[in-house]
Amino acid sequence: MRPVPQKTPIITARQASLISCHSCHLLCKPTALGSNHGLVCPRCGAKLHSRKVNSLKRTWALILAAFIFYIPANLLPITTVISLGKAQSDTIMSGVIYFIHTGMWPIALVIFVASVFVPFLKLIILTYLLITVQRRSTWRLKDRTRLYRITEAVGRWSMVDIYVVTILVALVNLGALATISAGPGAIFFAAVVVTTMFAAMSFDPRLMWDAKESLNGRIQHT
């Protein structure tokens, strides 16, 4: 990896009245493309937006929804096992505790990190990023961008518990050891994973950097 040799002055596409296509990264001149609404990238055909549409509102709405889903996801049973006429329901946490009791520390850790810790951390980080954007903070922009990148990348690993339930359902029911079924907690949990993924996608990291540009602009004008 090597940085690009910098010859052009520090200027963003928005300051130059250009739009960078989110799909193919072509720099487009909106004036050359006609009317202001319904701009389309001449190269790939994607709709052009200088920033993601309604990024802050959408991300806030998705985060709030995910916070709400997070509660039943952790309180309601994710699996119910019926063996010898006895039914036993497990939440995510009681599953983790079971693994600790049986000495399977690594598995307990994997489930706890992926299912409890990561979704919560993701929600906290996105909330923090939204608040800093709204307060037009220019503090440690590079680190905050990195934080966003990590948040976007780790979210997928939360799906692991859903997959475990799917595999257990297939194996245990066929083996006639017992019957196992997914509980309502699993649906809420899946909803948490999907909504936080959409929330991360709808957040636009360029909004953080816009605060810096507006600050620079003010200094230059006065």
């Binding site: 690009v4 052009t8 596409a13 250009l18 720099l27 922009l141 360029r206 950097w209």
Partner: peptide, 14 residues
Amino acid sequence: GLIACHECDLMQRV
């Protein structure tokens, strides 16, 4: 050769 960064919008020549 000029593109804008998709994460911070800075234009640079690649």
